[in-house]
Design a protein around this nucleic acid. Structure first.
Lengths: 257, 257
DNA sequence: CCACGCAAGTTGTACAGCCAACTGGCAGCG
DNA sequence: CGCTGCCAGTTGGCTGTACAACTTGCGTGG
């Protein structure tokens, strides 16, 4: 279950999408109870197994609870961020109604990989990488410094992109480089000299850091990135339960959960 | 799938635990391929469906990929943090080999809930809450200020705990208050006067903030907490894919992903 | 009035089977 | 040599069935 080589046209995905829409539209209220599995199966004309697959998607998104003996309960009625919005700064910015900007500071192509890079990207001893530093902005205001390392093959594609291409992630996906999984680490760092110059703050100022390692459907690393955000511009949210969770990047200082 | 009223003795959980152990022990290597579903079904003497359920657990944990046409591939060989370690500071501290400490700064019982508290805990107009402020420490060194709000019923249990009880979460679970889901938000804030005094820093110093809203299996809110960590003491990590993810709290500045 | 237990309703677990869609390697052909 | 097409292997998707475990409300009896 969950995902992977998931076909978008799958039945259980349509059911999940439909139920998810109903939930976010408040059809069952917050804390309300969903129809029984059997009832939903009849409504959509599918088997109970398919309904359960659909419900497990909503469960993983943190929209509903799931418990033996009683009907499922609505946990939240807010919309869920997609995986794409999490990985792509551009897509995320657009989804919250901001205009994303990008300025390339430095590109180093076909450089010899350091030991750390080889480990993160699972590369051979003599492998080469492409390093890129960009300043990302929201509506003209710089908010984040992004330092990304790509394996050589991916780097070649990145280097071939337009100078003005806003979203490298989207361009890469169009060329067949698919993002399937990512591991994120969020903590706090102090701005170094370069950070300060690029973001217009002072060295030593605190920044929110997200490190990310993304892999393709085959499990091969395709990106290792370190993003540093100015305070107040972003917050990371996650839903977690005994066996599942979802990370989301949201506008700064959201008042609710 | 996923979880909820999950029975620990379920077959698929045993299979998942066994396979997970093999993976973290490096039996298949990093980037290695798992046996086919049919092969595993035969090995464990279960149906393919049960094997698939087990594998979906490992998939949600970010241990393996999943893709139509090829065998599954090992993504990581590191151990996964449990939901309990994520919710309980005490359990987390112990799991990384540190001695957790707790000092209660303030308890306000049976206070009238503010509007924000009523919304977060889904309470009625005249509801009352229990507020608690604690300083958490690792091996005697204060690292975090925790401000938690409980609904009245839960607060009564909390107030009845020993003054020296380290883990309220564990005590609550022993008394039948089960944590099933949680929503987290991580961002950066400046220390106020109280933070500074409690943590031994200066007002205005940056802190890593985690806000958390936990619910029981029925979806009822049982805790709303805001934790503020000193820099360098903690980092949050998450695995995410097209439909699943896992949040973990880890020691400060971890070098790898 | 309260406590207990029963019964209906609901989700969890497991099995079996079938076909579709996709991957990767191999054989054959140009 | 390179390209194409095919085929075996593998996972995704869906159905149907059966039973177990749990929750909730109702009704009975004390």
């Amino acid at each position: 279950m969950v995902d992977g080589g998931a076909r978008p046209g799958a039945l259980y995905r349509k059911v999940a999408a439909d139920l998810g829409r109903e939930i976010t539209e408040g059809a069952y209220g917050s804390g309300g109870r969903l129809p029984a599995e059997g009832e939903l199966a009849e409504r959509y004309g599918v088997s109970r197994g398919t309904v359960r697959q659909a419900l497990s998607v909503l469960r993983a998104d943190g929209l509903i609870t799931s418990r033996r003996g009683t009907r499922r309960v609505v946990l939240r009625t807010s919309q869920v961020q997609s995986f794409g919005e999490l990985l792509s700064f551009t897509r995320w910015a657009r989804s919250i109604g901001e205009e994303p900007g990008s300025r390339i500071v430095r590109v180093e192509n076909e450089e010899r990989a350091t030991a750390a890079e080889r480990e993160q990207l699972r590369l051979a001893e003599d492998a080469r990488v492409c390093r890129m530093v960009r300043v990302r902005s929201l509506s003209g205001r710089p908010v984040m410094v992004e330092r990304t390392v790509y394996p050589e093959a991916v780097g070649a594609l990145v280097a071939g992109l337009d100078e003005g291409a806003v979203s490298h992630t989207v361009r890469l996906e169009e060329q067949g480089v698919l993002f399937a999984d990512a591991q994120h680490t969020v903590d706090l760092v102090r701005a170094d000299e370069e950070d300060a110059e690029l973001l217009g703050c002072r060295p030593g100022d605190p920044l929110l850091r997200e490190r990310r390692r993304s892999t393709d459907p085959a499990g091969a690393p395709i990106e290792w990135s370190e993003d540093r955000y100015l305070p107040g511009t972003v917050a990371f949210t996650v839903h977690s339960s005994a066996a599942a969770g979802t990370l989301a990047r949201r506008p700064g200082m959201p008042p609710s959960g």
